[in-house]
Write a protein that binds this DNA or RNA. Structure first.
Lengths: 161, 161
DNA sequence: TAGCTATACTTGAGGACACAAGGATCATAG
DNA sequence: CTATGATCCTTGTGTCCTCAAGTATAGCTA
């Protein structure tokens, strides 16, 4: 008997749970695939790419490390390590801040810019294939709207009433 | 200047990318919070819970390890390690298969059943709070439908045409 | 029967990330 | 000017998970 548990059992009749489970599975499936393609072709993690693209679109192609952390939803220590990697590949550099010597900027190097531009098209195509292509234009907008209502930030002070 | 990069820059006008980025951020934010609550109250990982609940709803409260892996979207080795943990806590046990001695079943113990039943309500409430409550009944169904079109499984043989 | 391939599972090594603790700098209040 | 507290960043440690490799069993073919 071949295993026929094809999909995560949708173990509940509650639509909220069904939606949540699909959300979880879809995330796992898509990011796994996206990651492995990005890794294979460009030697980048999904988080690496995420950081690079944020820098790419930032003013002066630089960002404070802490802002970077918040925008890609990593902790400060996560960013330190991730940037360590990107620095040793020469994709980003450090810059000090004159007005506040606590902060260090991460700056995209020329190589970093090039890397982003190389990686971008195929990655966007992958996203389109695995994600976007499933929906009509109208559905995309609606999906974006629905997802936009979810917490998109650290819910740090989740204090129970 | 306080940091005002509140949200991940939505760096593209393309709705597909916007939706994808929100999907990514929402996943990070929600699972982080969900995890930390589950951990704090019940000493369970999100994956632990996921595995336990799958077993809970399975016939005979047992499942082949491989099927478990597929349904929670972990690799075989991931499941081995995860179950090691749950076994040492006494929440699941092993059982051999008579007809095929390669397979081992993971079985929920009494303690495991109890654990699931303890954890379930608060976890479902958390999901409702962080996820479900953002949507009307109709929106939930629609969201579930949209998410259901995404790949929910390993796209192992993603062979380009 | 032997041989080949596929499947189920485990183990070693390594990566990505979190948390906690510590150092440096800044801002504010006495 | 000093004390206090907040903010930015790094480092030590540990956890979860993956990949690659290895073992054991199953089943098919000749």
């Amino acid at each position: 008997m071949p295993s026929q548990v094809l999909i995560a059992q949708e173990v509940s009749a509650e639509p909220s749970i069904t939606a949540w489970l699909r959300f979880l599975r879809a995330h796992a499936a898509i990011t796994r695939e996206l990651s492995s393609r990005l890794e294979a072709v460009h030697e980048l993690t999904l988080s690496d790419y995420d950081v690079l693209i944020q820098l790419y679109h930032a003013e002066g192609r630089r960002l404070r490390r802490i802002d970077l952390a918040r925008s890609v939803l990593l902790t400060a220590s996560g960013i330190t390590r991730l940037l360590d990697g990107l620095e040793s590949c020469g994709l980003v550099g450090k810059e000090n801040c004159d007005s506040d010597r606590r902060v260090t900027y991460a700056v995209l190097t020329e190589a970093g810019v090039k890397k982003v531009e190389e990686a971008r098209d195929s990655h966007l195509a992958d996203i389109e294939e695995l994600f976007g292509s499933r929906f009509s234009a109208q559905e995309r907008e609606q999906l974006a709207e629905l997802l936009g209502r979810l917490p998109l930030q650290h819910t740090t002070e989740a204090c129970s009433a």
